[in-house]
């Protein structure tokens, strides 16, 4: 078994309104920053032991499917690195 960290990034699908990101963008603009757009995302770092990177990724993928993301509004991706 190898120790991995699987990083699951969950973000709103393109086209789904993100009021929190809009509010954050407005606050940045009030501070004088210039930006064309801003998106927010949730990142989960999951430490787990697995036989190989594929197994670690598969397990993290299932975590995203079953809890971390809501498929109605979210896309997600998984990246695995040895810990």
């Amino acid at each position: 078994m190898t120790a991995y960290t699987a990083t699951v990034t969950v973000r709103l699908k393109r086209g789904v309104l993100d009021p929190e990101a809009e509010t954050t963008q407005q606050a940045l603009e009030r501070l004088g920053f210039e930006l064309s757009d801003l998106r927010s995302a949730d990142r989960f770092e999951v430490d787990l032991d697995a036989a190989d990177a594929d197994e670690a990724a598969a397990r993290a993928d299932e975590m995203a499917e079953r809890l971390l993301a809501n498929p109605t509004i979210h896309d997600y991706d998984v990246a695995v690195a040895e810990r």
């Binding site: 789904v16 009021p19 929190e20 809009e22 509004i73």
Partner: peptide, 11 residues
């Protein structure tokens, strides 16, 4: 039920 309830447009 179908769909999802998420952050109000007003935030």
């Amino acid at each position: 039920t179908p769909g999802a309830f998420t952050t109000n447009a007003s935030a």
